[in-house]
Amino acid sequence: MKKSLFEIAENTPLTPTVYRMRLAGDTSHITAPGQFVNVALPGHYLRRPISVCDAEPGMLTLIYKVVGHGTEAMASMGLAAELELLTGLGNGFDTALAGESPLLLGGGIGCAPLYLLAKRLRAEEKCVRVALGFNSAAEVFYAGEFAALGCDVTVATADGSAGVHGFVTDALPERYSFHYACGPEPMLRAVYDKAAGDGQLSFEARMGCGFGACMGCTRMTVNGPRRVCKDGPVFRKGEILWEG
């Protein structure tokens, strides 16, 4: 983990509610795809945890959805404004588990962290298939960017206005070596139930600190209570327990 200042280099809408923010600063503490940063926003007490969409030396890309006062404030920030971030939070996805033909499943804003994962897997010359799920065609983002990495991309929409009519779990290919998923909990549960074989699932949670101190985001697992922010957000399929 590192606390440092970043300068906003881009802050543009990708859809009516989803924005991409590029931030110039030290990305050296981001060690795995699927990690997140915790963004301090002026006038808001707690930081906002946002997954890392892409990280290159000196440049961080975040994709975030406007859901409340904090992300509304982020969306209105101009170029060159400075933000203080904690970087390198969370465990991230393990690319060593991928096998030759991994499947990446994203739901809504959960598609964002799969981008750096896909990039790393393509750099290892894996045959990467990506299924991106959204509510409707208007909410689709980054399908082209994943395709540009050389991934085989399928889009699913709940209302059928783009791609496959249904959920990502309605677009599962027949064979894949391992699966990685990120999205809202109902989607993760469907992936857990329907996707064959082993996988890693990345969870969202309401967090206090984002670095393991407050126990605010704990969920029960096969191995006992685990903090989504520090022990996760990525959990192996076999560790996961569901409430209810």
């Binding site: 808001h44 007490y45 707690l46 949670a205 309401r206 967090m207 206090g208 407050c214 126990m215 605010g216 985001c217 704990t218 969920r219 029960m220 209570p225 409430e243």
Partner: peptide, 17 residues
């Protein structure tokens, strides 16, 4: 184990846990 989720809320100049 503690309480079920949600455990944290933000407020002006502070937080609830």
């Amino acid at each position: 184990f503690g309480n079920p989720q949600i455990r944290i809320a933000e407020t002006h100049a502070g937080m609830l846990n």
